[in-house]
Amino acid sequence: MSRYSLSEFVEKTEQEDRGQGLFELETDRLLEVNLQQQIWAKAGSMIAYEGQIKFVREGILEHGIGKMFKRAFSGESTALMKATGRGKLYLADQGKKISIIRFHNDTLCVSANDLLAFEPSLKWDVKLMRKVAGIVSGGLFNIRLEGEGMAAITTHYEPLTLKVTPDKPVLTDPHATVAWSGHLQPEFVADVSFKTFVGRGSGDSVQMKFSGEGFVVVQPYEEGGYVQQN
């Protein structure tokens, strides 16, 4: 086989079954879902599929009145689609790196923009960071996942997990914060003196402060979509 031939390209990039279960990484930036029944996925994340799969955008009343009102405020960043059927489904989100997490009665809060897919066996809810609404335009949204099942989250480049301990709180840039352990309650700290030195604009004088026992996941990228721009 000649180097750089078409057949070599096809062989190197051809889909490969790894037998890893419902979720498996076809590449670091492409999630393969071996669908048997149903999953939830970020709206617009489907790039290809084979088999008998039906896609339905999440109904505004599908999860009750409470989530309906949260949807009205959170907008497209938390929009989900339901994939139902049998076949292979391929998901991606702007070439971001994908990490698969298996929950065993765990709880995790994920930035609404960084949740790619999850099993319906996981309980979930949309959370609004109300205290930041007066500081950062539009407010800040995350999705709380808990229970048993699998989920896939995305990051720009490699994620970094920082341990939070009672004697060592962690402060992060909201635009670079991806996820945190579910029992942590971040508070928002405004420090105008940081404005000149950190990040890109006036909003960067706000940090998320995590105190207690747990962890927080950040990415080496400030994601503007993390904060709603309505």
Rank of each mutant, 00 (worst) to 15 (best):
P169N: 15
E213S: 06
D28I: 01
E222I: 02
I60H: 05
E11M: 10
H156M: 11
R130L: 13
S7P: 00
A92W: 03
G225S: 12
I153G: 11
E58Y: 11
A190D: 00
I60L: 10
F215R: 12
V170Y: 05
A83F: 13
L122H: 04
I39Y: 03
I135F: 02
P169D: 09
D204G: 02
V192N: 08
S74H: 01
G139C: 06
T196W: 10
G21W: 06
P169H: 12
Q228C: 12
T161N: 07
Y4P: 00
R18S: 06
A112D: 00
P159W: 03
R200H: 07
A83W: 07
I101G: 00
I101A: 11
G203S: 10
H183N: 14
S77V: 14
Q52I: 01
V132L: 14
P220A: 07
S193P: 00
Q94F: 04
S45P: 12
S45D: 05
T155M: 10
P120Y: 04
G225L: 09
R3N: 15
A112C: 04
V126I: 15
A179R: 04
Q15S: 05
M150G: 09
K96C: 08
A179S: 14
L115H: 07
S99K: 14
T172N: 05
L160H: 10
D114C: 13
S202C: 00
Q94C: 04
G149C: 06
T161Y: 08
D173C: 13
L160D: 06
G85Q: 04
S202H: 01
G19M: 04
A72P: 00
V218K: 12
L128Y: 13
D28G: 10
L31T: 11
S2C: 02
G19H: 02
F118W: 08
A83K: 12
E11H: 01
R86H: 13
K88E: 03
F141W: 10
A92Y: 05
L80I: 03
A48S: 13
E158F: 06
V189K: 14
G44W: 11
I101H: 13
E119K: 07
E32Y: 08
D204I: 09
K12E: 14
K82V: 06
Q207Y: 01
L171V: 09
K195S: 01
S99A: 09
G85N: 08
N34K: 14
E58V: 07
P159F: 09
S181N: 04
L31V: 10
S74K: 05
V10I: 15
E158D: 15
I47L: 09
F9V: 09
K96T: 07
S193C: 08
M208L: 14
S45Y: 03
A152K: 02
W40A: 10
S111A: 08
G182A: 06
V216F: 08
V33S: 08
L35Q: 04
A151R: 03
V126F: 15
F197H: 09
V33C: 11
H183D: 08
G214Y: 09
A176M: 11
M81V: 14
V10H: 08
F103S: 02
L80M: 09
A176H: 05
N113C: 04
I98H: 11
Q219Y: 03
L171D: 01
S111F: 02
A43P: 00
